[in-house]
Design a protein around this nucleic acid. Structure first.
Lengths: 215, 215
DNA sequence: GTGAAAGAAATCGTCGACAGTTCCTGCGCA
DNA sequence: TGCGCAGGAACTGTCGACGATTTCTTTCAC
């Protein structure tokens, strides 16, 4: 599943492939991204790679130094903490807005999600439980219809993907966060903006705590 | 002063020139940005323009549709409100952090800034007063040393420059916001994170209010 | 042996030309 | 008159080659 693009793509979205390579760790942090090498690896022209690198620079995944080339931007732990702090502010905003504007349909979906999540947690199905946790965040963002905040969150998520991963397999957390996620859903379902915001803040404060004790 | 780059710049930073053109309004919102036209206007190759447009797309100033070209991204009033909401969260974070980490030197500079601002307000010097107001925000951000939040704020500022302008010449505001800015400074000087955050929130809530009644 | 300068290698930046796509225009036909 | 279908204009997307810059290597003088 690594490199089986033989002829299908004329030059597909090179940016997407490089992005994957970065986020799965195939391209390590701080690794140099040499245009001609990538061009050969994916079988596309150097110009295509160049535009892809420009795009990824805009997304904050790649660093470029004039005349010295591009490299995978490495996010330090300090930066990961900063990102988490900003995330807290943005997700709190989304939670608040979600509670304000949620439709009946949105609320029905949240209720179902809550039930699924609790069920997965009780049956000890860690994988689907973990997926459902992020689904909560994603759904709340979607409900908020705050395109600016959501776009920024997506950016930040991409940048700190590596640290998110480390965080995911951190022991101890995972059990108590069921209640936190449930509380967020409950607040939005109750259309209580204040409660939704503070529930989200409380939850992410916990995440931040773990992240700070990680180095 | 439009096109007197005869030979000096090999291709200078085209992105910078286009950015200026967008922010000064010479390129209107939603205006198409045709590569060959710009290439001719600035006397650089089309490839240079292309990379510049990619860069600006990453900054959120330009929109691109595949095979259909680029255009100046127009920020609707709704989006401007969203941006202001996000700004509130980010600047509140900066204010809090600034109050936590400010050095004695930072505080001295803030005190001077406060005095200058009050003086300008009392003497009715609207121009410098307005500049000093933004200086407060800028300084608080700088003191916070929160590079992630500051970078995002810079992005957002650039995107909503046009609306900021409209807001600046809005009547009524400007007198009362002296106290708000002073309160922010006082809280940071007192190294009181809670107070700093809520003072900033209060101030930006006022700005938001005006923005919402603007359409 | 050490350091600096000259040369070579590697890599980015730029260009002009060509291919592909979208959109407009005008013609023919009902 | 209205609709669909070429044909063409206007751009964007892609490519390979050339020029410029940085970095590594080698050589030479002291």
């Amino acid at each position: 599943m690594t490199t089986m693009s033989v002829e299908g793509a004329p030059s597909a979205d090179v940016a997407g492939q490089i992005r994957d390579a970065i986020q799965t760790g195939r391209y390590a942090p701080h690794q140099r991204l040499i245009e001609s090498d990538i061009s050969a690896e994916f079988g596309v022209s150097r110009a295509a790679v160049r535009t892809a690198l420009l795009t990824l620079t805009g997304e904050g995944l790649v660093e470029r130094m004039p005349n010295k080339g591009a490299r995978v931007r490495s996010v330090t732990l300090d930066e990961a903490v900063e990102i988490a702090e900003v995330r807290m502010g943005l997700e709190a905003l989304c939670a608040r807005k979600a509670a304000e504007v949620a439709t009946d349909d949105d609320i029905a979906k949240l209720r179902r999600l809550r039930a699924d999540m609790v069920a997965a947690a009780e049956s000890g199905n860690h994988l689907t439980y973990s997926e459902l946790k992020s689904a909560v965040h994603q759904r709340v963002q979607q409900i908020s219809r705050h395109s600016t905040a959501v776009a920024l969150l997506e950016r930040l998520r991409a940048q700190s993907a590596r640290h998110q991963f480390r965080l995911a397999l951190h022991p101890g957390r995972g059990v108590d966060s069921v209640h936190e996620h449930a509380a967020i859903i409950d607040a939005v379902v109750a259309r209580d903006p204040e409660a939704a915001e503070s529930a989200m803040r409380l939850h992410l404060a916990g995440v931040l705590e773990v992240l700070r004790t990680l180095d």
